[in-house]
Design a protein around this nucleic acid. Structure first.
Lengths: 227, 227, 227, 227
DNA sequence: CATGAATGAGGATTCATTCAT
DNA sequence: AATGAATGAATCCTCATTCAT
């Protein structure tokens, strides 16, 4: 009578491609990935409650049944989507060789990379929104993610420390605070695009405005940090 | 809390048409308001798709029929909730006599009022999130709201202008940009409380952190504006 | 996400008939009862797992939806069926005025009534079987039933005591034991009709055999009790 | 419902021809037996409709495919389980040399053996219940079983005849009747353990009660047979 | 205005069974 | 002999909405 938890959930996408080919039978990893891509879109578009398993299945070359085979439940699928989307973030630290850049410049790059990522991944932003409306029920459990984020903070702290050391940055802020400020400014433009846009009659997606805001946010962060 | 009497109240000639009626009558406005209060909570908690008309009705002293009588549909109820919640914002301008305050101080107060409002109305923040996930389908139609927000911008511009005039604020930012920066910094702390908290292992609801961040955000905005 | 327990379950069949009429709208008690009758048959025929909610609905003038409205779940319906079928037993004590009958005769009547009830209610027998296969998950919770059964035992004990007192019955058996013996002999003929019949090549439903066994069982019980 | 398999079933040359093989090979007979053991438990526990092929496979070292390979269908597996469980009964006649025992004593032993078997094989009892709820759809087809049961009856008749001949047993009962009485009294205690226990507030599995009932049932049968 | 009953169209989940390898 | 992946057809259950009274 009880719903047994899907043992399938633990399976990872390990199978590995078979030969080349037409996606005939028996490529679990591929169909898993296809389902995830579609589901990411649906959950981002309609939320956890609003997304329809049928619709996800329909947009896939696999069937609804396979969703349950691979992910156990709608919730399980949502978790997998969340995990995937968080782990796909091309993290700042991999794109930035801070050792060779002075701290102000490094910070500018961090802000720009964050800004650009958020602007070019509105779907990710929406999913984060969805998860926050759900009170972060699932994000807390994504252990794999935590580590990555602690790396981000370490990088930030390194840059901060260098700036403090050379007298360019103030000493009374910590990496998480800085991350909060940067995150807020970049995230909000995308996440609140619709309400802010409607209420203040402005199109935040407009390229010109975007460019201006990009500079403005870099500027705001640097002013915030200036010693 | 029980207002089942009300037979007296209805005798004011405004609501019911039929005079006979043995059924105790609650007046319409009251039940409307009660439904809205409950619905606000449900929509904030579960989103548009996730909220249940049955649950809303159950938490009300009225019946499901009344929801449809007053609001026509679930969507109609959601719109009414959105409208109500936006119109309940005790707007900054009503709480601030900027004429008697120097611009820096005025700006500080604006930030603080915004911060305090967001912190004390997480339900509102959640609803804004929900609406953004829905791509602002409904917020655009709330004409009554637009005016109020244009007032906010006017106030902001007035403060800005005074600061620019006396040389304290830089001249190259406009009111909407400032509003964006303030909004982002205050809103994000509440809206992304769960994901940010989980990923960076910090409790943004903690009173000490909140106090510190309040000052930090005021500081960040003033630094941003400084000439 | 969780299945909320049907608040409907508590509702009893109280509504009371409206006027006369064609079972148009709005007779909860009637449709409840109709559902129960059909469900009793389905559960008896196929067990809890084997019964199909769709099939039950189809054999009813109401819809599948109403089953959930009234009973909350398949399991809730099963429980209601179990309760109904146990409470419908025309209990022995209401059909027997033991005060005016000598104990041997009373016991004979008890056995005959039990035998006749079981023989004429194979559906009930099947449901009891089903419940036993389910390890009596639900029967234990039917408090309303317990009382009735303790009455049966009291009646049995009274008869026993009278027989012991007048020296016709042995003194070393108690009412529950007697009930077990009677129950076993009457129940088994019906419950195991198919397997016993197949293995020993006998049709226990045959009226002649039934009549003979009825006498035989009365005889066996009286011999068992004889002082 | 159709048994389309069977081509597999006929291949009884079972053990496995290839000796090399890297995959650890269970030989066919072994995995067949393992599947049957697990399936017996599942069908006894949940009935034909309630048992899950997946669950059975999961509790086995073989795969679901093997179930279909060996048994063709869920129903085929159920039939095999039924056949196995009936054929495993250590039949009374093999344990009793009636030639050297006086009839009363022989009958006592028959009852005791029956009682003990039923008490120690509740799973078997449950399966019989399941089969009776299914109206004995399959038991009738187990030809192999019929013979064994006719042996039981023959043995019973022999004992009866001896008792009748020496004047200890009454002459007006036949072997099947006696078997019914014995079967009912022994079977019911186990099969109706849950409902009887709940309704009469008694734990029929309690060892003390069991011991007492064992004697009681022997006594009841002998009284029933007494000339 | 109010209420219990009702409903059609979904919506999530599960099942026995089969196939390519 | 064995396995992971796949499937179509159910199967249980829920939702927003309406109706008779």
């Amino acid at each position: 009578m009880a719903a047994k938890d899907a043992s399938a959930e633990s399976r990872k996408g390990q199978t590995g491609r078979r030969s080349a080919g037409k996606t005939t039978r028996g490529d679990g990893a591929r169909s898993r990935e296809e389902i995830l891509a579609v589901a990411t879109d649906e959950f981002a578009e309609r939320g956890l409650a609003g997304a329809r398993v049928d619709d996800i299945a329909e947009r896939t070359r696999t069937s609804k049944r396979m969703i349950y085979y691979h992910f156990g439940s709608k919730e399980g699928l949502y978790k997998a989507v969340l995990e995937r989307v968080y782990s796909q973030i091309r993290s700042v630290e991999t794109q930035l060789d801070i050792n060779n850049i002075p701290p102000i410049e490094a910070m500018r790059r961090i802000v720009e990379l964050t800004f650009d990522y958020d602007e070019s991944h509105p779907q990710f932003i929406r999913l984060v929104n969805v998860e926050n409306v759900n009170r972060g029920q699932f994000v807390g459990k994504l252990v794999s993610i935590r580590k990555r984020y602690s790396n981000i903070i370490q990088l930030m702290q390194t840059v901060l420390d260098k700036g403090i050391a050379n007298g360019q940055f103030r000493a009374d802020v910590n990496a998480i605070d800085v991350r909060l400020v940067i995150g807020a400014l970049c995230f909000f433009r995308v996440s609140n695009r619709y309400t802010f846009g409607a209420l203040f009659d402005i199109d935040l997606a407009d390229p010109q405005i975007r460019t201006r805001h990009r500079q403005m946010i870099v500027d705001a962060v640097l002013r915030f940090l200036r010693a």
